[in-house]
Design a protein around this nucleic acid. Sequence first.
DNA 1: AATTTGACTTTGATGACTCGAAATTGATGA
DNA 2: TCATCAATTTCGAGTCATCAAAGTCAAATT
Lengths: 216, 216
Amino acid sequence: MLTSTVEDYLKALQRLGGRSDLVSFGRIAVALGVTSGTVTTMMKHLGDSGLVDYLPRRGARLTEAGQLAAMKVIRRHRLAELFLVDVLGMEMSEVHPEAEILEHALSDRLTDLIDQYLGHPAYDPHGSPIPDRSGAIRETSLKPIIERAEGGRYHLIRLTRTDQAFIDWLASFGITVGGDVGLAKRDLITGIVTLETAGGRRIQIGEAAAAALLVE
Amino acid sequence: MLTSTVEDYLKALQRLGGRSDLVSFGRIAVALGVTSGTVTTMMKHLGDSGLVDYLPRRGARLTEAGQLAAMKVIRRHRLAELFLVDVLGMEMSEVHPEAEILEHALSDRLTDLIDQYLGHPAYDPHGSPIPDRSGAIRETSLKPIIERAEGGRYHLIRLTRTDQAFIDWLASFGITVGGDVGLAKRDLITGIVTLETAGGRRIQIGEAAAAALLVE
DNA sequence: AATTTGACTTTGATGACTCGAAATTGATGA
DNA sequence: TCATCAATTTCGAGTCATCAAAGTCAAATT
């Protein structure tokens, strides 16, 4: 069993360096809010445990075992966030600190039950992909519609805004999660985005609001 | 913020001594599986923190503040158990260790959301009362029907067996959670309990099975 | 009153995690 | 080549929770 401190270090390593990049100890120290001496000590320890490759004075990278452990923490974090928002109705803004705790508290069994309850979701409320049990991320790319090509038609997976007025307004044009929506035009000067509904109708919306529509 | 270790000590103190009884350090040591020296150290510390009254060589009892903290831990534990069983479909037998962890991981906010989601329940899956936000327990007495008086008619609040066959069998006689059931007779010799359904029909059932019917 | 007994307390140590500050290292630029 | 500098490592120390073992106390027994 890994301590929650160790899990935090692995998660930071994964976030900063992914599966294979070397991460400098200074960056880890800043990310976790500890001193660099503390990081050195911990990295040696994690090196001995086989969770990271520790390269003196150069940095560290996750090993296969470290990567798996990190992805499990991330899976628990994202499933927790989605559960809190979709089932318990928490606001997205308040969900992160809760998930920071729950990611260390959920057993494998409980994590799987939550996963099942939510229908094996692919994305968390922020649109970040949720790793599966094996630590893998299904390769589909969810992005805000404003990062897509103009003229395209996309599948709306998630709204990162939770206020009912916004959701209702979109719904009044037939734009709902699970349905389709097109990007007709994005005006970089004015910051106005023109969406096209499934019925071919065009509506205008600000860039910031459009960024809340995650599509694939 | 209390550490989870401190919360475990407070919970043990509450379980062993309630609101006001002195608990000897030996009993605490056995309950928590630590040595008595460890208990002495911790009790002095809790005494300094104002959570317990520490009486050297005699024992300790919860203060008002300690009692409140203990009840909050118990509330989180029992709400977690109920949530795991009723919402996520866990077996009652596997729920306790999960709740031992979650009781230290749920924030006040999250606890209240779970409470609300479950409809402010009064009892956990084992029939133990769930303290409210203020740490108080609503005074109604839930007990197995076999501990009730013969000839009485009671309100079935909970079944502590979760196997569908048993639940269906009871339902086939019109005995369901939320409904009424009477205790016609309890034969101490044979161990056979005779229940009376709402419709006046009599059915026989073993003592152990009858103990799963919690009524008030 | 002296002894025994059992419970409690003290002491010195450990492991996990952290800090701050001093020492070291390796690359860079003069 | 050599001084400098930023990053890393080492070192001494502190907190929390724990243990084992030795010490102390008070009540019960003789």
